[in-house]
Write a protein that binds this DNA or RNA. Structure first.
Lengths: 217, 217
DNA sequence: TTCTATTTGATATAATTTTATCGAATTAGG
DNA sequence: CCTAATTCGATAAAATTATATCAAATAGAA
């Protein structure tokens, strides 16, 4: 069984499967069912599931839903809760801080930082500190995950500070492409990327061709 | 020259190139320079540029920066401004409404809707209306792009309403996988997807292997 | 002018990801 | 107990995407 590898594309589909399974009530689920649900190829889903399932599925029945959920959560690392900090507490930062669902994904935002805050302040259940306290606190608490929700001008500076403080994974909501050392992972949440796809779809639809298919993944 | 096609992957890189070119001051830029900037393969960038450039580059000099910017903007559809509406004006919705940069991407959020609003109300420069006014107003104004920032429970309902109102492209910030007809494009901004990648990176780093490479794209 | 280094654009190869096919296992229903 | 319908898992083929190689063009130096 051991730890299997999977493609980045597969990794992106897994959260959807997990969400779907959680909201289902079936005893067993099959790759075919999931494929239908998400309009994916059946073999693709089978391979995705094969990559995460520890017990395998049985012919004619499929997978036990609950154990597949467990395998997915395990594989995605949702069981090891990671403490995270967020820098930049504007509208977006507040939205993230108040988002209830992160615990389900193994993320716990323990503190926020913002250079506009002169004193610590409470946002929901999270305390926001002045930016200059960041490095020290992150170091002491050994936090490995940082969320950047500042504007593009400050993004690289914040990123550098985070790395100095020992952060190893960065979730970047700024449209700036961060420069980081090899061992740090940056996940960009770049809205411009999505917008490009949407905008082009609309432009093309307006002119003539409508060949662009509604690919969800 | 005509309209060229490009892969989905290419499309996702283009906004980064554009951003970089805008902030540069060089007279000319080469594929090699861009590749270095983003740590991409040089040939890959060359092909990306070949897909969008109308005038081509010249040997030994590369592309004229300003005309490449123009080509990118044209290709990405940033010149045809698309009016958009947003449904769900919580923290995230407000963040998007107040985000200044959309104009640069060819998006103009003209109105917001939220079922919690009983009367129309001003958020920044955007007016937010009660949800029930949505369908009618969108139809009358012939808006084609909808942004969904409601929770997963309401997402499909909002989506259906949008489609009935004639919307053809949906930018979905809820973690729900929307069911839509063939001719409607959904672009998911699914944070769970990103979180999966981050969370796994941290878990693996903690255990032992650190083979996961910091792929930006 | 001639030589050299750089850069494009085209073609070819490789890697990754998706899709198709098929046999074996197993369950449900007769 | 037999049969038919599913489903998995494995292997093969196709499609997409990324990378390598090379000739032609050209700017700039010698």
């Amino acid at each position: 069984m051991k730890k299997k590898t999977c493609s980045l594309q597969t990794m992106r589909r897994l959260p959807y499967y997990l969400y779907h399974l959680r909201s289902s009530t079936e005893e067993n689920v099959s790759a075919a069912m999931i494929a239908r649900e998400f309009k994916l190829n059946e073999v693709q889903v089978r391979k995705d599931l094969a990559a995460v399932s520890t017990s395998g599925g049985s012919p004619r029945k499929g997978f036990r839903r609950v154990s597949l959920i467990k395998d997915l959560e395990e594989f995605l690392g949702y069981n090891n809760i990671n403490d995270a900090i967020i820098v930049g507490v504007g509208h977006l930062g507040k939205a993230l801080i108040n988002f209830k669902g992160f615990k389900d994904y193994g993320i716990n935002i323990v503190m926020g930082f913002d250079k506009a805050f002169k004193h610590e302040e409470q946002i929901g259940k999270t305390t926001v500190f002045p930016m200059k306290k960041m490095k020290n606190m992150v170091q002491r608490m050994r936090i490995k995950l940082g969320i950047i929700t500042v504007n593009q001008e400050s993004a690289q500076y914040v990123c550098d500070q985070m790395i100095e403080a020992g952060i190893k994974a960065i979730w970047n909501f700024s449209p700036y492409m961060l420069k980081v050392p090899e061992d740090v992972l940056v996940q960009n949440e770049n809205m411009a990327m999505s917008l490009a796809v949407l905008s082009k779809h609309l432009t093309e639809e307006a002119t003539e061709e409508k060949e662009v298919v509604a690919k969800v993944f």
